[in-house]
Design a protein around this nucleic acid. Structure first.
Length: 231
DNA sequence: AAAACGATACACT
DNA sequence: GTGTATCGTTTTT
């Protein structure tokens, strides 16, 4: 760990960190690598007729729009990713692996298409409702430990795509939370992203948090059987 | 065919 | 108790 290898964003000055400060559109209209680590410790809250669940963010990943081979926006706008091309502070929800929802906060001005994937957090309100939505969670730390678990605990799905998380009346909101100690922020490669940019340290998390999802390398699943025709 | 994943079945401690 | 591999299921390329 030479000093020269220190990834960008590893040390976030407390006075710049979003947690504990007011969240504005301008905060999100900056390079996604600056915004992402500063979202750690912030609260994402969703209200429905069933109640409100709030999650304190402990793990996020940056995706740098059309410049980033790992980003959904890399090949330009599609019906799925169009929210990424819109104004910052809005939520991009996508469906993956045939059954899961994941959520991002859009960053940068319209056209930039960068976003921060919310990967994990600690449920700090509405635990009972979160547990009801996540019956397989065997402890509170598992309620939102992972990007699809986080959306499940919050009750987020396609209907939340495009929501303005900076509008206080929105059912899905991003709130400042409590500032984190700057030396608690860690960084490393993204999870499950192969190809160019796979080694770039665009994942950020809070050190020592039990809600941070386990690292899984981006290795394609091996397909068995004769029909695969490959080794 | 591969994907910004999670639940389950096992192996092992 | 933990770690690792397998597979479900839809969208996009």
């Amino acid at each position: 760990m030479r000093p020269t290898a220190t990834p960008r964003g590893a040390a976030v000055p407390a006075e710049r960190h979003a947690a504990g400060r007011r969240l504005t559109r301008r905060f999100f209209d900056r390079p996604v690598l600056e915004v992402a680590p500063e979202l750690l410790g912030c609260i994402v809250a969703r209200t429905s007729p069933e109640g409100t669940v709030s999650v304190r963010l402990t793990e996020v990943e940056a995706y740098d729009g059309e410049n980033d081979p790992g980003s959904h926006a890399f090949r330009g706008a599609t019906p799925r990713n169009e929210v990424m091309f819109g104004p910052s502070g809005h939520i991009y929800v996508y469906f993956t692996y045939g059954m899961h929802w994941c959520m991002n906060v859009v960053c940068g001005p319209p056209g930039q298409a960068s976003a921060v994937l919310l990967r994990a957090g600690e449920v700090v309100a509405g635990e009972q409702l979160a547990q009801a939505r996540r019956p397989s969670a065997r402890s509170p730390r598992e309620l939102a430990r992972g990007p699809a678990r986080l959306t499940s605990a919050l009750g987020v799905d396609r209907a939340d795509n495009g929501a303005d998380a900076l509008d206080p009346r929105s059912p899905l909101r991003l709130l400042p939370g409590i500032a984190v100690a700057p030396d608690q922020v860690r960084t490393g490669p993204r999870v499950g992203v192969a190809g160019a940019g796979a080694s770039t340290p665009w994942r950020f998390w809070l050190d020592g948090e039990p809600t941070v999802s386990a690292y899984r390398p981006a290795i394609p699943r091996r397909r068995g059987g004769a029909t695969s025709g490959r080794l």
